[in-house]
Design a protein around this nucleic acid. Structure first.
Lengths: 132, 132
DNA sequence: TAATAAATTTGTAATCATTACAAAAGTGAA
DNA sequence: TTCACTTTTGTAATGATTACAAATTTATTA
């Protein structure tokens, strides 16, 4: 399915900025920040505003089309893959990596309804462990 | 064990601000923000600086004595309970609640070493679900 | 104890990600 | 084309966090 089709199916008008941003996230699974999305796309679309990137990732995230990753204090990252998987932050190089994970066996208090589930690990990645 | 003893055992000098902040976190399991810690303690210790609260929670967190919770984009929260448990953010009232969770069965890529593990859920809490 | 060195705390001023907001631009219907 | 509505944009706030240097406290040495 194209990005525009996915947006339309969620009643989000597939404007050019929205399609570009969603496309970018679908093609770059590096969990980019708003800044990285903006810098990359403003080459192709010089009129793009960073505010539009902020607006769009918030729109897509609340529609459940992308995920907001808050593994770092400094800034949010975004992920077009909404399938269940964990995120690993390397505190050496700052990279964020995916890993396979099952859902933990959780006992929520009665009456709680779940919207999103995230598993965040931090540590040192393969590459940074080598350089020691 | 007293807070001062725990700090000492980690080679952190148990100064008054450090003990007060750590004590506060041990007694208030509500996952307070820096602002909440500062506001509460500055009544008893008017000379306390917010910078000291920032410095201290960073110190305690990197020593592994407390946990930094980044479930929200806006600000970090802190938790003196380092036992394994999940955190649930109610997107209606903003409260953060603990819940029991096992470790998910995760397959990390080879060579990755783990320092911290977090399970974050969002949704609606018991109380907010009632008011609907 | 006094003097000195080291560690800690403090207040103020940056930094910087995010949001507010209103004007501008774009889109679609009559 | 005109009008209403949505989206985008740029600028100016906001607000959490950090940098930093001065002030204070604590520890050490003589």
């Amino acid at each position: 399915m194209t990005s525009a089709e996915i947006l339309s199916s969620r009643d989000i008008k597939p404007s050019l900025p929205r399609v570009l941003i969603f496309d970018y996230l679908r093609q770059h699974r590096t969990h980019p920040t708003v800044d990285e999305i903006y810098s990359s796309l403003s080459v192709r679309m010089p009129t793009l505003s960073k505010t539009t990137v902020y607006n769009t990732v918030k729109l897509l995230s609340s529609a459940g089309i992308i995920k907001t990753i808050t593994i770092e204090e400094q800034q949010a990252r975004y992920d077009a893959c909404t399938d269940l998987h964990g995120h690993f932050l390397c505190t050496d190089c700052g990279g964020v990596f995916d890993f396979d994970t099952s859902l933990p066996d959780s006992r929520l208090p009665h009456g709680f309804s779940v919207a999103t589930q995230e598993v965040y690990y931090t540590g040192t990645c393969h590459h940074c462990n080598k350089n020691k």
